[in-house]
Amino acid sequence: MRYIAGRPARRWLNLSAPGDAFSHGFLPNMIETDQLTRCYGNLTAVDALSMRVEPGQVLGLLGPNGAGKSTAMRMIAGFLVPTSGTARVCGYDVLREPLQAKRALGYLPEGAPSYGELTVREFLQFIVRMRGFRPDVGFRRFDEVVHRLQLEEVLGLCIDTLSKGLRRRVGLAQAILHDPPVLMLDEPTDGLDPNQKHAVRQLIDVMARERTILISTHLLEEVHALCNRVVIIARGKLMADATPAELEQRSRYHGAVSFSAPGSGMSQEMLGRLPQVAAIEVDPLDGRITVFPKPGERILEPVEQLLRQQGLEVSEIQLERGRLDEVFRQITTDGNGQHHVMSGERA
């Protein structure tokens, strides 16, 4: 469980604004978008998107490529100006109080861009200066972040010469250098190998203990690994806003039971006669049998009982939680299975 109401968030808020609404124990939404819209010519990349990220949450912004995830994040980060609507970070409006909003936010842009000709040390020192720290505080933050992301050994190397995974770590270091209460990461594991992905996820997991995170991805495994809430967008529109478990419940597979048993033709018929069973499917490749329940029914026990009665040898039997990829497809495609993909994401 990561529902701790962000401790550093409170610390930061008290520090920055004593005596205003924040210090009376009222915590604003960490990120809030209000009818956020962005058009490129005739193309509506983000369409009246309203969502909230509450303190302590790790929200996964999910969507197919080109759904408008990056555009939405760029507007929240203050890089792009919304066509209409607005966004707030820690209560600061990105249009009216852009500097305060940017100070409250740590942002890792897509692909973790950085000045490749600089060394890691020079780059992070540049960020320290940009964040306007007093020298002593700046040094401390620098050391802390370098230690945290284990960058000690590459400090003197040019960023251009680093591997993708290391470069991503430098980008993360940049994003958390000022200890922001809100972190926004645009596809932080995209293009990394499985080991690097694992390492970055672990880092995010640790960081999530003390701050609010908005993370965009098109990888469903990431949602299981990291997020406690999911927002799915397609064609710039909000399609779903739920916990991963709730999404799994929407799956046809939620509560289904699957097993492998050789020579079970006869038992299939028997299974079909169970009052709780809605349908049975057999995988044409490996012969695995999946039994779907009628809505609201639990079928693990009756199925097991039946199999025992039949005297069938079942090597393992599994209760399905639901398949996110299926729900994702269902939500982000229309009836014809046509993807809601726009013509290329604008850089």
Binding site: A77, G78, F79, G111, G116, M130
Partner: peptide
């Protein structure tokens, strides 16, 4: 071109 504009303009600077 290098995408660092996004980094620069999302740092607290006018």
């Amino acid at each position: 071109r290098g995408g660092t504009l996004e980094l620069l303009l999302t740092l607290p600077i006018t």
